[in-house]
Every structure is written in structure tokens, then in C-alpha cells.
């Protein structure tokens, strides 16, 4: 289990991680999601003691990383940037790392086999492809057979086969009872790999929820309705506490009611319908919406003061996603 409490990191006047509090449970893959520059890597670096928090703590299994007498056997780490000397062979690299805490030589061969690098174990890392480098990083993380894995963007640079391999590996490792904390800026990838999600933007916690809830709340129950009497229909639906947005002369985006219920209400009010379509918001859209205000560089737009979604509450985050989705649709 990984626990962050009031975790804050400032570099001069810039706040990279802003008062994060969350916990990562064992047994499932937890995705750490956010746009580039959201503070994911900094958080992970603080978890393994490379960076010192300005405020707050982050612990693994209740202890600060520095307190472990054999840290590699507790926490396995893959950092985003390659953390390997390019002049050394894969085997010697892993051996040198293993030797610091008496991990046996045969374990080095074992992890090389696990990631499929046995054949190139004697080759210098400098000649490795991005994908091979990532595999070596995974091997290094698995060296101590740790119960907690912290992986920063592990699918970066992998081909589709490699991505599927990592996905299966992480899920298998989680099923073994390990804590798996994986960062990514790709929502779609996380939807396939992770069970739980911690979403950050500009260093702040945006959502802490299960992937299922995240998807459900992201899609909401947005229904696209076409009717010659759209504004009258909107009044009817508003009385039922639905959120309606007029998206065209005869078009409505309705949030908060099922398509079935909208159809029934329209029939009861005698309003003809020309179209009634439940809309699935794509995960990428949902992610863009939820993190839009949190993206560090807004492509020329001045950063806006974003109204913050109450963190840690799946329901609360869901409402915000729904609202955002409605707006997004309205602009089309």
C-alpha cells in the first residue's frame, strides 16, 4: 500500500505537487493519470526518496522509503527517463543493482528471462531500442520481487505487442496481491489496464475513483434529442430535474434522464421526437474535459482559475464530468 498525505513539492515559486492525499491499495492496478506536467513523476520520485517533499509525506507499507533495509525487495521502480548507464550490458547493470542488497545472481537471469531479454543480456544498453529499454526497466523493478511496483509511463515506446505484454503482466502481478501504481497520460491505456484511478492535474488531485465509475460518470446519461418543439421539451424535462442544453434549433442535449424516460415524458406531453440517441462520451473526451483546466500549457490561452472538483468523491467528480461533457457537446 502506498499512502500520500498532504504531499507537496515546490521548485522555487512553482508548485509541482500540491497537497496530494491518496492511497494505493494492493491487489489491483491503480492508474495515476494526468496530463504532462501534472506532477506524476515528481510524486513517484518522492515515493522512492529521490526528491524531498516540501511538505507532507508519502509512505510505502507505512514506512518512509529510506527506512527499508532492502528497498528493492519492497518497492520496484521504473522511472520515466531511462535510468541506466548506456555503456554497461543489461546483465552487468542488473547485477550491480542486485549486489547492493545481496539479491542472488540467478535472480538477475530470472528477471531477464521474465522480460524476454535473455538473448541480449550481454549487449550494451546503449544499443537497445526504446521498447527493450522499457523491458530492462521492468526487469530492474522486478529484481527484488517487491510487493509494491511504481511504474512511470511503462508503455511509452512499446509496440502493440509490448503494450499487451505489460498490461497482462501488471494484471497478473496485481492478482498475486501486489500493489501496482502505474502512471500514464493515456486514458485509453489506463481504462484497459487499471481498476482504480487517481487523476491529477497541475499537481492537484482531481479524482480518486474506480475506472468503472469514472467511465460511467464520464459518459453520464447524456442523451441527444431532436424535436421540432425542442424548447418546449426542454421545459418539460427541466421540471424533472434534468440538465438540458439547447444545441441547435431543434436539438437538445439532456443530462440526468435515460432515453427511455425522455421518450415517455415527450409522449405524455404530446411532443414529437425525431431522434433520441444515448451518447457515450469517449474516455479520451472525458479525460480531456476533466483535466482541461488543469493542463499546464493551454496552447496560448491564459491559464484559467479552475473550479476544483471535490477530490476523492467519485460521485462529485462524476457530476463535473457530466457537466463538462454537456458543454463539450454543445459546442459542436
Amino acid at each position: 500500500m502506498i499512502e500520500a498525505r498532504d504531499l507537496t513539492k515546490r521548485y522555487g515559486s512553482k508548485t509541482a505537487v500540491d497537497d496530494l492525499t491518496f492511497s494505493v491499495q494492493p491487489g489491483v492496478v491503480t492508474g495515476f493519470l494526468g496530463p504532462n506536467g501534472a506532477g506524476k513523476s515528481t510524486t513517484m520520485r518522492m515515493a522512492i526518496g529521490l526528491d524531498r517533499p516540501t511538505k507532507g509525506t508519502i509512505t510505502v507499507n507505512g514506512r518512509a522509503y529510506r527506512e527499508f533495509s532492502a528497498p528493492l525487495c519492497e518497492v520496484g521502480v521504473l522511472l520515466e527517463a531511462k535510468a541506466v548507464h548506456t555503456g554497461r550490458s543489461a546483465f552487468k547493470h542488473l547485477l550491480a543493482v542486485a549486489q547492493t542488497q545481496g539479491i542472488p545472481r540467478r535472480r538477475v537471469d530470472e528477471v531477464l528471462g521474465l522480460v524476454g531479454l535473455s538473448e541480449v543480456a550481454g549487449k550494451r544498453v546503449g544499443g537497445f531500442s526504446l521498447g527493450m529499454g522499457q523491458r530492462l526497466g521492468i526487469a530492474s523493478a522486478m529484481l527484488g520481487d517487491p510487493g509494491v511496483l511504481i511504474l512511470d509511463e511503462p508503455v511509452n515506446g512499446l509496440d502493440p505487442e509490448g503494450i499487451r505484454w505489460i498490461r497482462t503482466l501488471l494484471q497478473t502481478l496485481a492478482r498475486e496481491g501486489r500493489t501496482i501504481f502505474v502512471s500514464s497520460h493515456l486514458m485509453s491505456e489506463m481504462a484497459l489496464t487499471a481498476t482504480h484511478l487517481i487523476v491529477v492535474g497541475r499537481g492537484k488531485l482531481i479524482a480518486n475513483t474506480s475506472v468503472e465509475d469514472f467511465i460511467r460518470s464520464a459518459s453520464g446519461d447524456l442523451v441527444h434529442v431532436r424535436s421540432p418543439q425542442a424548447s418546449r421539451l426542454a421545459e418539460v424535462l427541466d421540471r424533472e430535474n434534468a440538465k438540458t442544453t439547447l444545441t441547435g434549433l431543434d436539438m437538445l442535449a439532456v443530462n440526468g434522464l435515460t432515453a427511455q424516460r425522455i421518450g415517455d415524458l415527450a409522449f405524455a406531453a404530446g411532443i414529437p421526437l425525431h431522434e433520441l440517441t444515448p451518447r457515450q462520451v469517449s474516455l479520451e473526451d472525458a479525460f480531456m474535459d476533466i483535466t482541461r483546466d488543469a493542463v499546464e500549457y493551454n496552447h496560448g490561452q491564459p491559464p484559467q482559475q479552475q473550479p476544483h472538483v471535490p477530490a476523492a468523491a467519485a460521485g462529485g467528480a462524476g457530476d463535473a464530468v457530466g457537466a463538462g461533457a454537456t458543454t463539450a457537446r454543445g459546442q459542436r
Binding site: 520520485r45 522512492i48 526518496g49 529521490l50 528497498p71 528493492l72 521502480v77 522511472l79 527517463a81 531511462k82 535510468a83 541506466v84 548507464h85 548506456t86 555503456g87 543493482v97 530492474s140
Partner: peptide
């Protein structure tokens, strides 16, 4: 090369 992060980790 970034190896220092592995070493200190």
C-alpha cells in the same frame, strides 16, 4: 545517463 536514480533508489 540517469543511472544515479537507480543507484540512489
Amino acid at each position: 545517463t540517469g543511472m544515479i536514480r537507480t543507484s540512489l533508489g
